[in-house]
Design a protein around this nucleic acid. Structure first.
Length: 274
DNA sequence: CTTGTACCCTGACCGC
DNA sequence: TGCGGTCAGGGTACAA
């Protein structure tokens, strides 16, 4: 479900609510969200009594940094969501609660995940560092168009697929890949290595602009994604091509097409994008 | 190394 | 109303 802007929105919501809170108890309702080959009760033993230092993000991972060198790594995949309550935003569709973390202020952190593709993994700081080292750079961090050009160098894979590869570039997913390529006027089928430095500059600018704008809009809500409060994002109203197959291109008025790449939909205007 | 495919899982939607 | 097929902001394991 969530790409960088959505995960970052959730991170910013959770951080002030969780800092300094201690986990008093937890309940796992769906054991398959506990990763790392441990049982839910072992998972509970590792986390009970731990205190949240901060909530951070890397790529599409949400990280609960706890005391005693403990990192709770979470990935929401397609349908994972968090809420904090005494009560749940029940009307917002929390009907598949997978885990509850009872906090020392009387509130509870809820994790809901219809498809249960998301999960939690308990790591040490060093173990997490090894995971993080395998991820590509953060596009909104110190990241130049030259860095992007080097990522693309000699790759024959379609540029769209490369943008989605988290080992090469972190945080971009299916929506924002299509949106950035449209704005940069680059065809998603182009071999990544064929981009000129001018095209890499355009794409660099587009990726950063789309992600920043989406972040300012609190993300894109198409189905399941919600902020921690239950509020929808707003960027779905500003998408130019994603999900708009058959509609007119906002630039040239030709018809927006949908194609399939690496088993996933890409949306483009083949007249504007070359 | 690179690239493509199957798979994980549930629910919404569409055509018949 | 039911049934089958398709699709969905994700990543991984494995094959070629």
């Amino acid at each position: 479900m969530p790409e960088l802007p959505e995960v970052e929105t959730i991170r910013a919501d959770l951080d002030p609510l969780l800092q300094g809170r201690r986990i008093e108890g937890l309940r796992i309702h769906k054991p398959d969200i506990v990763l790392g080959g441990i049982t839910p009760s072992e998972f509970g033993r590792l986390l009970r009594g731990r205190t949240f230092l901060r909530v951070s993000r890397r790529a599409k991972y949400l990280l609960f940094e706890l005391d005693r060198d403990t990192v709770l790594q979470t990935h929401l995949r397609m349908t994972g969501r968090f809420a904090i309550g005494p009560s749940l935003p029940g009307e917002a569709g929390f009907r598949h609660i997978a885990a509850e973390f009872r906090l020392d202020d009387g509130r509870t952190l809820f994790y809901d995940d219809v498809r249960r593709l998301g999960g939690f993994l308990v790591l040490s700081g060093e173990e997490w560092a090894r995971v993080a080292a395998r991820l590509g750079p953060e596009p909104l961090g110190r990241f130049s168009s030259g860095d992007l050009l080097r990522i693309f160098h000699n790759l024959r894979a379609p540029i769209k697929n490369v943008l989605l590869d988290q080992r090469r570039l972190a945080g971009v997913g299916n929506i924002y890949a299509s949106e950035a390529l449209f704005r940069a006027e680059i065809d998603p089928r182009r071999p990544a290595g064929s981009l000129t430095s001018e095209e890499a500059r355009r794409l660099h600018r587009s990726v950063r602009r789309v992600l920043r704008e989406a972040l300012r809009s609190s993300g894109t809500t198409l189905r399941d994604y919600r902020a921690v409060s239950g509020a929808s994002g707003q960027y779905q109203n500003r998408l130019r091509v994603y999900g708009r197959e058959g509609e007119k291109c906002p630039r040239c008025r030709k018809t927006i097409e949908r194609i399939v790449q690496a088993g996933r939909s890409s949306f483009l205007c083949s007249s504007c994008q070359n």
